[in-house]
């Protein structure tokens, strides 16, 4: 599991550093959007990179991608692919949930669409 977490953090850092080279490390509890400045396309790139490395896509069926707010959420999602236990991991289930970045980015898209329509 530690290797999985490290792999995920390394991929997240890789994408984060393309935009913010000054960031030297990322933590599992940091918000991908609010803290690390990622956008939905960046998350899509992270997931594509992880699918190439891990050969699984938890967002095809197991997990809603809109539930992903942190690197820790990503770890919990990928852990489900490698687990035979159908219950969610306790730490993922019990952790207090911060505001949903996935929904925020969808809200951004809706606002943008409304703005363009009103022009």
């Amino acid at each position: 599991m530690e290797n999985l977490n490290e792999t995920i953090l390394a991929v997240v850092l890789d994408v984060v550093q393309e935009k913010s080279p000054e960031i030297e490390a990322v933590r599992p509890d940091q918000m991908l959007v609010e803290d690390l400045g990622l956008r939905s396309l960046d998350l899509a790139r992270i997931i594509a990179k992880l699918e190439m490395k891990l050969d699984v896509d938890p967002f095809a069926e197991l997990v809603a991608v809109t539930s992903i707010r942190t690197s820790g959420d990503l770890s919990a999602a990928y852990a489900k692919c490698f687990s035979t236990d159908e219950e969610p991991a306790p730490e993922a289930a019990n952790r207090p949930r911060p505001p949903r970045a996935g929904l925020a980015s969808q809200r951004e898209l809706r606002q943008k669409a409304r703005g363009e329509q009103s022009q």
Partner: peptide, 9 residues
């Protein structure tokens, strides 16, 4: 195919 292209950039 985008899943291959996105990591490549």
């Amino acid at each position: 195919c985008l899943k291959g292209m996105l990591p490549q950039g």
